[in-house]
């Protein structure tokens, strides 16, 4: 069976064939700015003692005065997450954005350190060598 054989022994030609076949679907997925990008809404619903609860959350984040375009979501247990750093979860959106700045050094060029304290970090990349120190204006 040809189908099975292709799966068994890929070649550059078979790979290009399947990429072509899947390209339009792949393009559509890659373009998706995570359900609306910045300002995407997370809707959490539950019932409690016969009452139905709906919690809608959106994050609007500016970095250096420019809107951050990634879609930040929040889980049922209240942890904040972002697809750009898919292996982590955060107790605070501030921690998440600090990590984004660390992980994407090409997008956030090094600035002079504010030398402030970075209290309240529960997670993430504090003290990563060669990465910028954050100006730490602490609000949670």
């Amino acid at each position: 069976m040809k189908h099975k054989k292709d799966l068994e022994r890929p070649t550059p030609e078979s790979i290009a064939h399947y990429v072509q076949r899947n390209a339009s679907k792949a393009r559509a997925c890659l373009k998706m700015k995570m359900r609306g990008g910045a300002g995407a809404e997370t809707v959490r619903e539950t019932d409690y003692k016969g009452h139905s609860i709906v919690v809608r959350t959106t994050y609007r984040v500016d970095i250096d005065g420019r809107p951050f375009m990634g879609a930040i979501g929040v889980s049922n247990s209240g942890e904040v997450h972002y697809h750009g750093v898919p292996n982590m979860k955060f107790s605070s959106a501030l921690d998440l954005i600090r990590t984004v700045i660390d992980v994407f050094p090409d997008d956030f060029k090094k600035k002079r350190s504010g030398g402030g304290k970075t209290s309240g970090r529960t997670n993430g990349m504090s003290g990563m060598p060669g990465m910028m120190k954050r100006r730490a204006k602490q609000t949670r």
């Binding site: 700015k33 995570m34 982590m88 003290g127 990563m128």
Partner: peptide, 21 residues
């Protein structure tokens, strides 16, 4: 991928920050 999770073309060395995160 850039910080807003869009693929882009680059030409650079591999980065690691072992034990930092």
């Amino acid at each position: 991928a850039d910080s807003s999770n869009q693929l882009r073309q680059v030409n650079r060395g591999l980065r690691r920050a072992i034990g930092a995160g």
